[in-house]
């Protein structure tokens, strides 16, 4: 079944199409929900809310852009809404620091796995973590991030910049205490968590 057929069937309320859509996209959307929520239970709730909204608004999907992108956007919004309920996130306007792009990262971090990266990112403050995720991992621009989080575009830029410098700080501090291998780093991260 092609994506277009799947969408058409879901638009007509066909249960088989809906089931197929859930089975196809649930794992990828679950990964998104996991990134923005604190615990697996909240992620599951966010995923459920995501699909409720998908079926509710699928008729408004015009076919513009990728369908998966549309689903991911709903998943991100639902996850953020859930995260906000538990821990409200406050954003402050910060000046972007573009010089960070030129900073060096120790080579020990060149082959990190997903879990290790996540552990590293989770050490960022909540507001910075969210913006970093949205821009770097999801690939949204600052205008879109601003719309999603209800902040200005400049605030989004500032948060990203701050997240980057914070991340570099973490990496450099880890490196200075002798974590020069991936294995040691993983062990350290586990110990910190």
């Amino acid at each position: 079944m092609t994506t277009e057929e799947l969408i058409a069937r879901c638009k007509s309320g066909d249960a088989q199409g809906q089931s197929c859509l859930v089975r196809t996209y649930a794992p990828r959307l679950m990964a998104i929900c996991r990134r923005y929520t604190k615990d697996p239970a909240s992620a599951q709730d966010a995923l459920q809310e995501t699909f409720i909204n998908v079926f509710k608004y699928i008729n408004s999907y015009s076919g513009k852009g990728s369908f998966e992108g549309w689903l991911k956007r709903i998943a991100v919004n639902c996850s953020l809404a859930f995260a906000k309920k538990v821990h409200p996130v406050y954003f402050v306007d910060e000046t972007p620091d573009s010089a960070l792009q030129m900073s060096e990262v120790p080579d020990a971090y060149s082959n990190l796995g997903k879990e290790e990266i996540m552990s590293l990112m989770k050490r960022l403050p909540e507001s910075l973590y969210v913006v970093f995720n949205l821009v770097v991992i999801e690939g949204y621009n600052h205008r879109e991030v601003g719309e999603m989080l209800g902040i200005t575009e400049g605030s989004s830029r500032g948060s990203l910049s701050r997240a980057r410098s914070k991340l570099i700080e973490i990496l450099q501090s880890e490196n200075s205490i002798g974590l020069d291998t991936k294995k040691n780093f993983s062990a350290k991260i586990s110990a910190l968590n």
Binding site: S19, V22, R23, A26, P27, R28, M30, A31, I32, R34, R35, A43, Q44, L47, Q48, F51, L100, Q101, M102, S103, E104, V105, P106, D107, Y109, S110, L112, G113, K114, I117, M121, V136, I137, G139, R164, I168, L171
Partner: peptide, 29 residues
């Protein structure tokens, strides 16, 4: 390694990320 490359590494790692879901339970819910 440049920081920019490090960010690319992060985005690549999560591009096709997926997590295990009990789809039957989800469908039922």
């Amino acid at each position: 390694m440049k920081y920019k490359n490090f960010e690319n590494q992060i985005s690549e790692a999560f591009r096709q990320d997926s997590a295990a879901v009990d789809t039957d339970a989800l469908l039922a819910s």
